[in-house]
Design a protein around this nucleic acid. Sequence first.
DNA 1: AATCTGACTGTTG
DNA 2: CCAACAGCCAGAT
Length: 117
Amino acid sequence: MTDRDPPFALRVLAAVRRIPVGRVATYGDVAAAAGRPRAARAVGNIMRECRRPDVPCHRVIAAGGRLGGYGGSEALKRSLLIAEGIEVSGARIRALERVRWKAPQSNARHSRRRLKN
DNA sequence: AATCTGACTGTTG
DNA sequence: CCAACAGCCAGAT
């Protein structure tokens, strides 16, 4: 149809809002949930701007369970996560796969051409 | 339309 | 584990 996807930023914010308390998602996970599995970097840029209280941006972490950024206060991000019951060891989320949130599989959207082959 | 930016990610040494 | 590099992306200039 003529309807186009809503702005990527909006879809990202919507996805982040769906992350349950006590769970986390990597920038890549959020990008995938927003329909752009390779747009992790773009997600980071959006998070940087997002200061909405209704968006739990502290639950968005970097790949490998690393904390990632948080307006320069990653110590605060760490505290918020721990306060939700997430185990954090140094700058690493422990047992990431156990608290990692994944958006439910959605029907293929546009099918990004995965290059030939 | 071209270029720059950066809360990213995977690979390589 | 850390640093350098390269690939990838959407939004702002």
